[in-house]
């Protein structure tokens, strides 16, 4: 649910990075944080365990620039990917405007990806959203690793709806901004429709 502030002439949107544990959600945010101009970003917050696993969420506020005199701000969140943090994941999805699913391309994580997409669908539905309607893109991460599933196969399993999808290697930044731009565009396009 975006927030339009006529007083401050701002529009705020919430993007959530979803995906199985260790798929690279936090790594996406860290790369964006490192590569963004200081005046376009706020502080990145990570609520993580001592072993740097996301406990509750990561948060990164970004300014994208102006549209028709309105500053566009995106709040990026990640969910904790580990299965037993499901209660927390549901909370992060509240008020979401767009979702990026980060898939781990490695063979051994194939099932974890499928479970996570299914979990996303269920948790969104609990908040009253449909994965088929919400702005949604998929990122196939870790393409640089040797043991990866071919993209065609991942696409078949994880992207039957044919939403925009991207290959990535988030550690080196490959595909990170492309994925973010794609979902941001979808969110803004949705706003345009919703405002009619």
């Amino acid at each position: 649910m975006s927030f339009i502030n006529y007083m401050a002439r701002e529009i705020n949107c919430k993007i959530v990075y979803y995906g199985p544990g260790l798929c690279g959600k936090t790594t996406n945010l860290q790369y964006i944080y490192e590569r963004t101009n200081p005046d376009a970003k706020g502080k990145m917050i990570s609520l993580a365990t001592e072993t740097e696993r996301t406990l509750f969420f990561d948060f990164l506020p970004l300014s994208l620039g102006e549209i028709r005199g309105f500053k566009t701000r995106f709040h990026l969140y990640t969910v904790p990917g580990q299965v037993f943090y499901d209660a927390s994941r549901k909370l992060i999805l509240k008020g979401v405007d767009g979702v990026i699913f980060v898939a781990d391309s490695q063979f051994e994580r194939l099932e974890a990806n499928q479970e996570s997409v299914e979990n996303l669908r269920v948790n969104l539905a609990e908040q009253g959203y449909s994965l088929d309607k919400i702005p949604y893109v998929i990122q196939y991460n870790k393409r640089d690793l040797p043991n990866v599933v071919p993209v065609e196969e991942l696409r078949e399993l994880l992207n039957p709806m044919g939403v925009p999808d991207f290959e990535a290697n988030a550690r080196d930044g490959v595909g990170v901004f492309e994925t973010l731009k794609a979902v941001s565009k979808l969110v803004l396009t949705e706003l345009k429709k919703g405002g009619a």
Binding site: I4, I67, R68, F70, T189, L191, K192, G194, G195, A196
Partner: peptide, 11 residues
């Protein structure tokens, strides 16, 4: 909504 008028180019 101020966004009803935006174009794909704006985005």
């Amino acid at each position: 909504s101020p966004f009803a008028e935006i174009t794909d180019d704006d985005i």
